[in-house]
Design a protein around this nucleic acid. Structure first.
Lengths: 153, 153
DNA sequence: TTTTTCCCGACCGTGAAGGTCAAGAATTCA
DNA sequence: TGAATTCTTGACCTTCACGGTCGGGAAAAA
């Protein structure tokens, strides 16, 4: 059970972006990737890949040319962490069962729906993860109390 | 974010073992791995690796020789899924931050505790996953309603 | 003493994660 | 206009851990 670097980097970079944006002079100015790469110690080339996906997911806006960079497409409080992880192309995979009602690899033919006995468990785990990451926003992380909603739940 | 095969196989095999045990004639008889391997379509050699770990974790008991095999060390209701996953040696890794209070790779020196801003988020996610998997037992999965405690929470 | 089963370390191939490179396109400023 | 800056994109490469095999052993029962 592990989170890959891409999803983690994506969230780290978005947090960094959100943190830098308000400091700028202009209200709607953008932050170049080079700055974030430096701050988060992520290679610029790799970060470009990630932001390309985030842009296509509609989470950030790109501005080219001198003085350009990236901006959040929405307010930090309106962006859930799950959106960033999904937007980065990182899948939440808890099963390897085939989709579309096909029988799971380990299922016995006698079982109802040809689902393996553990299928519901993995599905529930996936939902639980998505529920949690959907309940935390960029603003929460920035404010430094992302654990609160989880502990309270 | 994905669960590796080892942890998943471990749980599948334990469920299978728990399901087969009551069917046996003797009350405390054991199930040979070959049977489980066949039922779950997992290679016997790989399954042996996994059960070796589960045994060392104290989750199953091994009996050698003809008529031997494995038995659950405890009642299904007393075995939480998280124990199986931990016992199989699968780590729940949501961060890559260095342990022991060392600064996270991406942390800015100005941040308190030299923790990256997303550290608390990943830690909370890890706790959430462990909480869920700790709330479901082998008996729940066998009974077929492992999703209930999650949905209710 | 043979069979069955667990025990365990060594080994290996593959796929995907993680990361680099290079060429290009849009935009701004001098 | 042209040069600098920054995003855009696809192709490419490298490493490594996962998933899996192999082979020899040891215990226990028949």
């Amino acid at each position: 059970m592990q989170l890959s670097a891409r999803g983690r980097y994506a969230v780290m970079a978005m947090v960094d972006l959100a943190a830098r944006a308000p400091v700028r002079s202009g209200a709607s100015s953008s932050v170049p990737l080079a700055e974030i790469a430096l701050g988060q110690r992520i290679s610029l080339a790799y970060l470009e890949q990630i932001f390309c996906r985030l842009r296509r997911a509609g989470l950030v806006l790109a501005v080219r040319g001198p003085g350009g960079g990236y901006r959040l497409a929405r307010a930090p409080a309106e962006i859930a962490i799950i959106e960033i992880i999904r937007g980065s192309g990182e899948p939440i995979r808890t099963t390897r069962c085939r989709p579309g009602g096909l029988p799971c690899p380990g299922s016995s033919p006698a079982l109802p729906g040809a689902r393996c006995r553990t299928h519901a468990l993995w599905a529930a785990l996936g939902h639980e993860i998505e529920r949690f990451l959907g309940s935390v926003t960029l603003a929460d992380v920035l404010a430094g109390h992302p654990a609160i909603p989880a502990a309270a739940a």
